[in-house]
């Protein structure tokens, strides 16, 4: 059976998909986001740049 035959499949998919993607990007963001001059700040020293 094609997935598109389930009634309102697309709307449900859109709803869950949005939640999933936003959640993923939020979680990853918390882990991966740094201040804008991060790499420059890393290179400029402060202990050999191992604070990541």
């Amino acid at each position: 059976m094609m997935l598109e035959e389930i009634p309102a499949f697309s709307a449900m998919f859109g709803f869950i998909g949005c939640l999933l993607i936003v959640a993923l990007s939020k979680i990853l963001g918390r882990w991966l986001q740094r201040r804008e001059d991060y790499y420059r700040w890393l290179r400029s020293g402060s202990g050999g740049g191992e604070q990541g």
């Binding site: 709803f15 936003v22 986001q33 740094r34 804008e36």
Partner: peptide
Amino acid sequence: FMFAALKVLIAPHERITYD
């Protein structure tokens, strides 16, 4: 619709993301 609802969550920040 979800964009309107979740706008606060995905607003841009002055941050870089490392990959």
